[in-house]
């Protein structure tokens, strides 16, 4: 027989049972696994995309930071260069001032040294001149220099004109202090008496007379009273010599200053 009703019904039931079985144990687990995997992949893709976005943000952030850092470094460099230039100018100025001060100090020292040297030269010259003259006069003319100088001083006082005597009289007699006679050599008692006598006779001096010996400052014999001075010295000669020496030393000083500069 080609067709059997029981078999047909049985196969119908069998097929429906198979549908249920496969739905329960095949399609549903498989589809669930596929869906779960798709969700997993989708979530992983989303996570990867989020990570990528974050990475891009981080990259942008770091690039911005790099740019800022470069700009900051550039600014700092510019600032440092400016500060260095400023400091350099300041140091140069300070050095220049120090050099100027040193040069001034050196010039002052040179000038002081020059003055001291000039004074020393004058003093020695004076001493030597008087020594030579004294010895020359003593050896060649048998004359004492000090006596001659005192004599000449006395004759000069004697040789004053009347108006000059009046002038000296007024000047010297109004002094409350003693009249001072300063000489480079010690005047003998005779010389002192002679000078005292000639001053009293010619200039009518009533005040006391004080005799001083100053070999380093006086180049002859000086009379000092009340701001007036009558001198019989070689100061003019020495002044001329000092002028020449000063010129010579100035030339040397300028040359030295130029070398220092």
């Amino acid at each position: 027989m080609l067709f059997d009703w029981f078999t047909l019904i049985a196969q119908l039931v069998n097929f429906l049972v198979l549908v249920w079985l496969l739905k329960r144990y095949l399609y549903k687990p498989i589809l669930d696994a596929i869906d779960e995997r798709e969700n997993l992949i989708s979530s992983q893709l989303h996570a990867a995309e989020a990570t990528r976005t974050n990475a891009l943000k981080e990259l942008e952030n770091y690039q911005q930071k790099n740019t800022d850092f470069d700009q900051q470094r550039h600014d700092l460099l510019i600032g440092a260069i400016s500060e260095v230039n400023l400091e350099r100018q300041k140091l140069l100025e300070q050095t220049r001032k120090e050099v100027e001060a040193l040069r001034f100090h050196l010039q002052e020292s040179l000038r002081t040294e020059q003055l001291n040297m000039g004074s020393e030269i004058i003093r020695r010259t004076r001493t030597e001149v008087f020594a030579i003259v004294r010895k020359t006069l003593a050896d060649l003319a048998g004359v004492n220099l000090e006596d001659q100088m005192a004599g000449v001083f006395i004759s000069r006082i004697n040789g004053l004109k009347t108006d000059e005597k009046e002038f000296f009289y007024l000047a010297l007699n109004h002094s409350e202090k003693e009249i001072s006679i300063r000489s480079m050599f010690k005047l003998s008692m005779n010389q002192q008496d002679a000078i005292h006598t000639v001053l009293k006779n010619n200039l009518k001096i009533s005040a006391g007379i004080n005799f001083e010996t100053l070999p380093d400052t006086v180049s002859g014999i000086e009379l000092i009273a009340n701001g007036f001075k009558v001198s019989w010295t070689i100061d003019d000669y020495l002044a001329s010599l000092e002028t020449h020496l000063a010129k010579l030393l100035n030339q040397n000083t300028e040359t030295t200053s130029e070398n220092i500069t």
């Binding site: 047909l8 097929f15 429906l16």
Partner: peptide, 12 residues
Amino acid sequence: SSLSTTAALAIS
């Protein structure tokens, strides 16, 4: 190869 089976499936 049974008409009963194919008929059952066709009826399904």
